[in-house]
Design a protein around this nucleic acid. Structure first.
Length: 424
RNA sequence: GGAGAGGUGGCAGAGUGGUCGAAUGCGACGCACUCGAAAUGCGUUAUCGGGGUGACUCGAUCGUGGGUUCAAAUCCCACCCUCUCCGCCA
């Protein structure tokens, strides 16, 4: 959520920065509603002051002269003031009802350091790593064929259990998934992230806090009879760990990593990536989440990206780091780097991690603040998160990049101790 | 799921219709005393919104949302959460 005060003080500047994004956002209605709301509020709080005064006066009179004409007159005035306040409150609520959804639907402002561009075509490749590990053979199979041949992935039977876009991992496949989760958590906890296992179901308030709601409800699975949704990413439960809290400044930075399954409806992506592990309704992910002092968030973002990249490097998977331009930036992000791993079957780099700095956007929605000892007031902190990494896509990359002519798959050295074998 | 109890400031805890943003204690911070510390004394110690350059000022907030009333932490209704007992359950 954007700062309403900033919005009314620098509307042109805010509008210009929103215009750098894809899509049209008009802040004019918000500025107007805010104006109306404030003038109503002024009027109402004056009346309320009078109402409080009457209350006190009547309180005094009730002791000495409860039936007196003056007392009755005050009570009468109190009733009228109260009625007027009621009217104003109704109007104010109606305005709030219009304003709040508009405000919640506005995306974050791109950071001043985010490259300006209209679409993903103008994203910047920041660096590329691991060219020497690119597979040389031209006879490469896609990972779903490798997995099915090895009997470690089963998509067909999963549709009986659930639907299309689900997978069942079997034998060494299940073990590899589990090993990857363990490996990633081991690395990230060694890098200083405190592991958490949060609830996998989250309420609407939490989704509002991180920005999935109200705009992206159709991408989520909802539990029908409760105010609970399946979490689309650990970002939601982990960021909301501290919602509505005021942390002491000394507590920052806070680093968390979390393994969770993630559930996404993938509405509107029918026909895209229909095969394999790339786009499933349920997938595993290890997420990194940081809560930091605003002055450090830029530097914290860089190290977060490095922490995610470290996993790909340890697995010796070729990848590149992309800096998203303003036109491709996610809803809540001020700045974002994507990591893309090489998928030989598609001859393409595919996203395997997305590392965003949200600035105070989520903190304002979720009301996460900190207080500096000895200083007056509170400040919003900055939140950041990134995948470290998406586990299913990592498995896909391993199967494809490490496949051998005989149909087997060599395991990355870093994983061999976890699986106690070298070949799948 | 059934029965009961309860949700008040950083914490503990009083407050059952009126001057209560809220006693008291603890903690924290400042000052005094001290060579220093402890003890003691005095003082400060929530958040949000509006107005004002500012000193300041108005309003809101006692789990959340409604209601009754001139007036609600206090009464009524709904919901959420916590605890105890029973049932069920990995």
């Amino acid at each position: 959520m954007l700062d309403l005060r900033q919005l009314r003080e620098n509307p042109d500047q805010i509008q210009a920065r929103l215009n750098q994004r894809q899509g049209h956002y008009d802040i004019q209605p918000i500025v107007q509603l805010d104006q109306q709301q404030r003038s109503l509020e002024q009027e109402r709080s004056q009346l309320q002051a009078r109402s409080n005064e009457i209350g006190k006066l009547v309180g005094q009179k009730m002791k000495t002269d409860p039936q007196g004409a003056e007392t009755q007159a005050l009570r009468e005035e109190g009733s009228q003031v109260k009625a007027k306040i009621g009217e104003l409150e109704t109007q104010e609520k109606a305005l709030e009802f219009q304003l709040q959804p508009l405000l919640l639907a506005l995306p974050n402002l791109p950071s001043s350091t985010t490259p300006i561009g209209a679409s993903e075509d103008e994203n910047l490749e920041v660096r590329r790593w691991g060219d020497e590990y690119l597979p040389q053979s031209s006879q490469l199979l896609p990972h779903w064929e490798i997995g099915e041949k090895l009997g470690i992935l089963n998509f067909e039977r999963s549709t009986k259990i659930a639907q299309s876009r689900f997978v069942t991992l079997i034998g060494a496949g299940a073990a590899l998934e589990r090993a990857l989760i363990q490996f990633m958590l081991d690395r990230q906890t060694a890098a200083g992230y405190i592991e958490v296992i949060p609830p996998f179901l989250v309420n609407s308030q939490s989704l509002l806090g991180t920005g999935q709601l109200p705009k992206f409800a159709e991408d989520l699975f909802k539990c029908d009879s409760d105010d609970l949704w399946l979490t689309p990413t650990a970002e939601v439960p982990v960021t909301n760990l501290y919602s509505n809290e005021i942390l002491p400044a000394e507590a920052l930075p806070i680093y968390h990593c979390a393994y969770t399954p993630c559930f996404r409806r993938e509405a509107g992506s029918y026909g895209r990536d229909t095969r394999g592990l790339i786009r499933l309704h349920q997938f595993n992910k290890v997420e990194l989440v940081k809560f930091v002092h605003p002055s450090t968030s830029e530097a914290e973002h860089q190290t977060l990206v490095q922490n995610a990249e470290a996993i790909l490097q340890a697995l010796q998977l070729p990848y590149r780091t992309i800096e998203l331009c303003t036109g491709d930036l996610g809803f809540g992000a001020a700045k974002c780097y994507d990591l893309e791993v090489w998928l030989p079957s598609a001859s393409k780099y595919r996203e395997i991690s997305s590392c965003s700095n949200f600035g105070d956007f989520q903190a304002r929605r979720a009301n996460i603040r900190f207080k500096e000892a000895g200083q007056k007031g509170t400040q919003l902190l900055h939140t950041l998160n990134g995948s470290g990494l998406a586990v299913g896509r990592t498995m896909a990359a391993i199967l494809e990049n490490y496949q051998q002519p005989d149909g087997t798959v060599r395991l990355p050295e870093a994983l061999q101790p976890y699986l106690k074998r070298e070949i799948l």
